[in-house]
Lab assay of single mutants.
Amino acid sequence: GKKITDLRVIDLKSELKRRNLDITGVKTVLISRLKQAIEEEGGDPDNIEL
């Protein structure tokens, strides 16, 4: 897996889109939004599978 902070903006957006989440904002905003979603799913933001 990869750390969420290692993802490119395009990867962050595709992961957010897959979860029907907002894809607007700067990279730090996208990271925190995706991180929260992954944690709510019970996942580990430091080890995500794309």
Rank of each mutant, 00 (worst) to 15 (best):
L30P: 04
S32H: 06
T24N: 05
T24M: 12
K17D: 13
I31C: 11
E39I: 15
N20E: 10
D6E: 14
L30H: 04
E15Q: 11
D46W: 13
R8T: 07
R19H: 02
V26P: 14
I10A: 15
G42R: 08
K27N: 07
T5F: 11
L12K: 00
K13R: 10
S14D: 15
G42Y: 03
L50Y: 01
K35G: 06
G1C: 06
R19P: 02
D22T: 06
G43H: 10
E39G: 09
L7H: 01
G43N: 09
R18S: 13
L30K: 06
K27D: 09
L16E: 03
R33G: 03
E41N: 08
D22A: 09
V26R: 13
I31F: 08
E41K: 02
I23C: 12
N47P: 03
L12H: 00
E40D: 05
T24K: 15
I38M: 09
T5D: 12
R33I: 03
K3V: 06
I10W: 06
L34N: 06
I23S: 14
D46F: 11
T24D: 15
V29G: 08
I38W: 03
D22Y: 02
D44K: 03
R8W: 02
L34G: 03
K27G: 09
G42L: 05
R19V: 00
I10D: 01
I38F: 00
S32C: 06
I38G: 00
R33C: 00
K17M: 13
N47G: 06
K17V: 11
D22V: 05
P45C: 11
N47R: 12
K35R: 15
N20Y: 05
L21H: 08
N47I: 08
D11N: 04
I10L: 07
K2N: 07
D46N: 15
I23Y: 10
G43C: 10
K13G: 00
E39A: 12
R33P: 02
G25V: 03
R33W: 00
G43R: 09
I48L: 08
I31Q: 13
N47Y: 09
R33E: 01
L50V: 12
D22S: 11
L7F: 07
K3C: 09
S32L: 13
D44C: 09
V26C: 15
D6R: 07
T28V: 13
D6W: 04
G25C: 04
K3S: 09
K17G: 14
T5Y: 12
V9A: 06
K3A: 10
E41Y: 02
E39Y: 07
K13Y: 09
L12E: 03
T28M: 15
D6G: 07
E39H: 15
E49V: 13
E40Q: 14
G43T: 07
G42A: 07
L34W: 00
I38V: 14
T5I: 14
G42T: 06
I4G: 03
L50E: 02
G1S: 14
R19S: 01
L50T: 11
V26K: 08
L34E: 05
I4R: 01
G42S: 07
K27Y: 14
E41C: 05
G42M: 08
T5P: 06
K35N: 07
K27S: 08
I38H: 01
R33D: 01
Q36E: 08
E15N: 01
I31V: 12
N20Q: 13
V9M: 15
T5K: 12
D11Q: 12
S14W: 11
K13E: 09
L34Y: 02
K3H: 07
S32Q: 04
G43P: 07
N20T: 08
N47M: 11
L12N: 08
K27I: 04
K35D: 00
I23T: 07
D46Q: 12
L12W: 01
V29F: 05
N47E: 10
L21P: 01
R8P: 11
S32E: 15
E15T: 00
E41M: 03
R18W: 15
I4P: 01
K35V: 09
E40Y: 06
E15D: 00
L34A: 02
D44S: 09
V29Y: 04
D6N: 12
E15V: 00
L7E: 07
T5C: 12
R8Q: 04
L12S: 01
G42V: 04
P45G: 07
E39M: 10
L21D: 01
R19E: 02
K17R: 14
D22K: 07
L30R: 03
G1I: 15
I23L: 12
T5G: 13
E49I: 14
E41V: 05
D11W: 00
G1V: 15
I10V: 14
G42K: 10
Q36K: 15
I48Y: 14
I31P: 01
D6P: 03
K27Q: 12
P45R: 04
L21R: 07
S14N: 05
I4D: 05
G42N: 11
P45T: 13
D11K: 00
N47D: 09
L21A: 04
E15L: 11
E41W: 00
K17I: 13
L16Q: 02
D11S: 01
D22P: 10
S14T: 13
L16C: 04
K17H: 04
I31D: 10
T28I: 12
L50F: 10
I4S: 04
R8G: 09
K13T: 11
K13N: 02
I10S: 05
K35T: 13
E41S: 10
L7I: 04
D44F: 04
E41F: 00
I38D: 07
P45N: 05
T5S: 14
I38Q: 05
K35S: 11
T5E: 14
V29K: 14
V9Q: 05
K35A: 14
G42H: 08
E40V: 13
E39L: 13
K13A: 06
R19A: 00
L12I: 11
I48H: 09
V26N: 15
D11E: 04
Q36T: 15
E40G: 14
L7N: 10
D22R: 06
T28W: 11
D46K: 10
T28R: 10
L21K: 10
P45S: 10
D6L: 06
I48A: 03
K17A: 12
T5N: 13
G43I: 05
D6F: 04
L21I: 08
G43Y: 08
I31H: 07
T28P: 15
V9C: 13
K3M: 07
P45H: 05
D46M: 14
V29Q: 14
V9T: 15
K13L: 10
D44E: 05
E40F: 12
L30T: 03
N20H: 04
K2D: 05
T28K: 15
E49Y: 14
V29H: 07
V9K: 03
N20F: 08
K27P: 09
G25D: 02
D44A: 06
